[in-house]
Design a binder for these strands. Structure first.
Lengths: 219, 219, 219, 219
DNA sequence: CATGAATGAGGATTCATTCAT
DNA sequence: GATGAATGAATCCTCATTCAT
């Protein structure tokens, strides 16, 4: 009866500073993370309704009840999973380190390829990106929505720079183009995870996509 | 003897000839259709798992049990709904009547606009198009999958003609381009139904999309 | 709205005398009988709870609803079936015609063989004879019970004559012996219908049974 | 991990060694047994179809859902009940302890009296012995059938010894006689439980039955 | 009379959540 | 902290019975 903050999504226990975690706290924190990982897998593969709490706990290697020490319930677990996921995804797409790409087209391409790679290992994101999961849960954490908008804005920024530099055509509708590119981005990232033969995600297709976007934008 | 065909998805009763349906049969047929409509709405809005049989029956204005005279269960109801939906969608996208478009670009544009319009009134399709529903039901009617492939093939055909006629660029990867276009098509058709402010579907966006595709393909 | 007597079990409609039945009444009477036959088969094979009204009606070749013109419900249908069955069985066991058997042992043997033969074609009787069906229906027509007692009494009568004539041993407990014989009689009659390999009913077994009873009774 | 073995019918939990069962496991095991007891009563008194899961759970003093932690469903519960019942019955009929009866007739008599006594407190067995329940459940545990055959074989063995020792008549049809005796045995055991006035089970009747069988077999 | 479509109460089953240990 | 046995509300489905045609 100690943590149970249940309010926000504290990655770690209510420690004040970074150290001073006994072995117990550390072990606990590790279990919390295992639950989140398992939840992401299950929600991603089955959807919210079809994923069973029991399965998630089993996959995490913890008991059914422990889950309720960390999260208020299935619903809040879902919310936390989504928030963490979106945060990780953003970090992958726009890595802090590394040199900035030399051209705007290269920036878009990098973003696309990074994102596809991320989704290959994160089942849940595709579902969120296609915005279906939103329907499954009324009180959906709007973190996801805000982050998606942020991405569109970011893309629009890149496009604007490209237009100004003459790299992209001048009469581009920035908002719409950013929307379309974000959408394509989400789609093929989704496929990268799903690996269904009907919706393949081959390197050739990815190359074609990059080319497609490039041609549509070029001056 | 009841009806209880349960096998395929006969739109009308097992009448031998075209007429001779008493008021009873007619009324019954209408109820079957109302159930299908209600089911499409519910599945589309809530997903398979979250849609309750009771709700579907209530929305259709019939009793809980009547549903089971027409369908083996919730699952088969879903399958039939999907099949009908896909069939209707195909008819909308490729209408038999009317003159063939004068250019390949125009053909693509017509397809896109038709489909978007269709989705505006058919909640379920977006979910199928984004291929999420597939995960929700093991024994998913493969009609949907086959039809989606048919669409890609159709688009590829249009593209091929365009390439041959010099309308589109010669080094186009037909398969990949058809895939991308079909995907965009599905995405924005989906949005047309959802009407969520975060993922809008304005006429401007649609115009931009048409232009985007056009630019990406042009010779 | 004509027959619906529903009270007792009139084999035919409420005709006052034996003739004067129009074709309609005759046809109706035939359907009633077909329902009874089908019901006997279904109840016999599946038991009361597992037999569906719909199945019975279908087997009788009539509609679901017609059944309720003749009988108050599933329950009363069962009662009527039982009464008719018991009556028929009694007629088979103790046929009016023919010469009386020359010995008491012969009388018992005839009864046994007749009864076994009857059950071969009347599925329900075995269930009643083993008195299990009684448990399945609270307000069971006591006709069956009374008839079974009648049989025991009849057997006791034969035994008494046999004792007096010196054919059977003098210290026989009449009531108990009659009970045992009736019970055996019911058991093997039941088997004759069931035809299950684990509980066979071969001619040899029947012969052995006759011999068994004979040896147990002989003076 | 729960328990959910669901496979066979382990009387006790999957403990590795014989002890080390916490109070929880013990309590759980007790509940499992209470469910089995209640199920036996309900199935025995009402038959498979008419017995409600809810009633069984209520009689066992547990919730509706707990039943499904121990058994796959109503059907498997029935199967387990039958297997346990048959096993217990066998133990009662052929107790390991005690001296072997001095004569074959005495052996038969002991078997009969033991079995009658057992049925007095085990409602379900009569139904199984009369082989009616088999009809009620397709995938009936064949344990019952095998055990019944075992009993017949056992009886036949006793008879054979009796014939060889000259206690029983030499021209006895062993198989048929064993069948008849087993049948009588089942019948009166059944009555012992039912306690219905129409089919009484008095000590006198039991004595008469023993005498009846004895007379039928004697040399 | 005859039909069979329609009803809805009743029963089996699932699964998120709690709580005694 | 951690467990997992226990709960029971929620949901799918069945089937006896009714009634408009």
């Amino acid at each position: 009866m100690q943590k149970v903050s249940h309010e926000s999504a504290p990655t770690s226990s209510d420690r004040v500073d970074g150290r001073s975690q006994g072995k117990r706290q550390l072990e606990s924190e590790r279990k919390r993370q295992r639950i989140l990982d398992a939840a992401q897998r299950c929600f991603g593969e089955l959807g919210f309704a079809a994923a069973k709490v029991e399965t998630i706990a089993a996959e995490a290697g913890v008991s059914n009840g422990l889950l309720y020490q960390f999260f208020r319930g299935k619903e809040q677990l879902f919310e936390v999973v989504v928030e963490e996921l979106i945060r990780d995804w953003a970090h992958t797409m726009f890595p802090r380190t590394g040199d900035p790409p030399e051209s705007c087209a290269a920036a878009l391409e990098a973003m696309l390829r990074n994102s596809v790679e991320f989704c290959r290992t994160h089942p849940l994101l595709p579902r969120l990106l296609t915005a279906d999961a939103v329907l499954e849960l009324e009180r959906f954490s709007d973190v996801a929505t805000r982050r998606l908008e942020a991405q569109r804005t970011h893309v629009a920024g890149i496009l604007e720079r490209g237009v100004r530099s003459g790299e992209f055509r001048a009469d581009l509708d920035l908002a719409s183009a950013a929307d379309i590119i974000s959408q394509l981005h989400a789609d093929y990232a989704a496929r990268a995870y799903r690996r269904r033969p009907e919706y393949p995600m081959t390197p050739e297709l990815l190359d074609a996509l990059v080319r497609f976007v490039h041609d549509a934008l070029r001056a």
